[in-house]
Design a protein around this nucleic acid. Structure first.
Lengths: 156, 156
DNA sequence: GCTGAAAGACTCGAGCG
DNA sequence: CGCTCGAGTCTTTCAGC
């Protein structure tokens, strides 16, 4: 079987690099270099290879929404009038900054979103004024996350 | 009203720092410094302040699971025999690396998780052999994400 | 795919206003 | 307290193997 694009081959050194940098994107590269026994420049070249392969899609500082006062995380299932309205609804949802994720899903709901709010009252305002007013949205069902116990990336 | 811990005051410079580093955690600090007109050391001190306030909870390289072959993302609602089993179930879920998020939620389900699988067959194996076999788990309902159109952090 | 070296950037402590 | 300056360390690039 032929694969269209080069398969990514990551060896033990790549894994160590990825484990260090997925835990802390500003881990000194020379520290990793000393740990695995090759030069900093070599680590740097491997990183460029991993970025080119798209395995690494970027790096981010992580902001804790709770410190900004967002204490309510909610999953919202959205029913559309017609599934074909999808694209316009997505466009409208992108304009609501509290919407963090948006999925097109199987099951009863057409669209499934993850959303932040300051509190339950704010959540109600967002649903009433920002989500349910989008053309094509029929109704919504909310599932409030009372506590998030796991939050991680896939293991390397 | 008195607040127990010092409220975080972020000015325009802090916002520019955060916007740069949430987009790319390895943005050169001196580049930000030149852009806002203060020294690199001053940026560094502000970063330490933001970390100390917990507004920044860390930094990560982002791995794209698709490049590793994980083409199926699924949300799974879990019914427990008794809500009190929660803690043990969470402990078991933490041992399943494909589980990326886990929430304790309102609504019919007790627990709600986000999970990766290579394909639908792998998803079935994970549900049958890893999730539904956990003591206390009654049954599950799966919602497959056919496409994720939004994935972002809260805006600063 | 690696090394070594050089230029630029990061980080931290000391000290100024 | 928030800033700048400077010294030591780290990052990044490039030539060479």
């Amino acid at each position: 079987m032929k694969s269209k694009s080069k398969p990514i081959i990551i060896d033990g050194i790549d894994k160590k690099i990825l484990r260090a940098l997925t835990a802390d994107a500003r881990t000194p590269i020379l520290e990793i270099a000393r740990h695995v026994g090759i030069s900093g420049a070599a680590i740097h070249q491997r990183l460029r290879k991993l970025e080119k392969s798209k395995l690494i899609s970027g790096s981010q500082f992580i902001i804790d929404p709770k410190v900004l006062g967002y204490s309510t995380m909610t999953f919202v299932g959205i029913y559309l009038e017609k599934a074909a309205d999808n694209e316009d609804v997505i466009r409208a949802l992108k304009k609501v900054p509290e919407v963090l994720e948006c999925h097109y899903t199987t099951g009863d709901w057409n669209i499934f979103i993850k959303m932040l709010a300051y509190n339950n009252n704010h959540l109600m305002l967002l649903l009433n004024n920002k989500i349910q007013t989008i053309a094509g949205v029929l109704r919504t069902e909310s599932i409030i996350s009372l506590d998030q116990q796991i939050n991680r990336q896939i293991k390397i």
